[in-house]
Amino acid sequence: MRARLLIVCLCGSLLLTCVAISDRNALAADESCDRACLTGMVDQYLVAMVAHDPSKLPLAKDVKFTEDGVPLQLGDGLWATAGGLGTYKLYFAEPESDAVGAYAVVQENGSAAILALRLKVAKRRITEIETLVARKPTTSFLNTDNLTEPRPIFLETVPPADRPSRQEMVSMVGKYFDGIEQGNGDIVPFDPDCIRIENGIQTCPSSASSPLGALSCGAQLSTKIFTYIQSVSPRRFPVVDRERGLVLAVVRFNHPGTQQTVEVPGRGKMTMGRYSQWPNSTQIAELFKIKDRKIKEITAVIVTAAYKAPMGWE
């Protein structure tokens, strides 16, 4: 009799445990946010922003929002001015870490701006919103004329067997920033045909008519013309989309203003870019396409900032 009672009790508690585990799994399934869910969050965000109405969003209570490195109340900044969206939208996601990023062209009182957006999600609610907005007054160069559709390479899927690990992908991108600091393109795993587009403008390879002449992305770095960028710090890699071979780096280039010229072999003494002229920084959201373990293409949103201005997430 005692043994029978024990068996009944065990079965009962096992059943309760099973029910509890099953409930937890159901809850976890409900709270997870896959790629479609994450990119859907971006869609919702953009629609709410243009409607100037953050109440439409599934926000966590303690959601944090920055624009150009400055913490703002959600609804302020671009939320108050965005009048419409362009056709250019490029999304990338990392469901493993509930992170998603996007670039989009936004109309703001008649002028086009480029928005770089990063969202972090927990339990299907937005907990972090980081934005950089490249506008004519806040950056020395911007051209949205060619930003109608994302370049197809950013949408290509990498076969599962060819996908490097997150760590490998971050390491490759890190070498790009090391190459800038050191003025050495040889240490960067560039594809020979790598293209870089910054604020809508192609900056490498440079054209034959440019002051540097026709140079690849790597060869440009090796001229040391960019060594006025004394440090690329801090560096964060908040979204790594292994499925598409994309890495989003959010970094700050620091220009102390102490070096304005450089000796370029074959070209003599050259004046560096305008950011070399005084202490300042640029805050950058830079997306890298990695293909066959090489950096194939780069696209960046760049905003001018005060020297070493915090990005709001350090």
């Binding site: 102490t258 202490p279 005060a306 070493k308 201005a309």
Partner: peptide
């Protein structure tokens, strides 16, 4: 601070 940013004394305008 320089232009609202905290720096080490000796950095920023100190160098230029």
């Amino acid at each position: 601070t320089e232009d609202g940013q905290r720096l080490d004394v000796g950095d920023g305008f100190w160098r230029t």
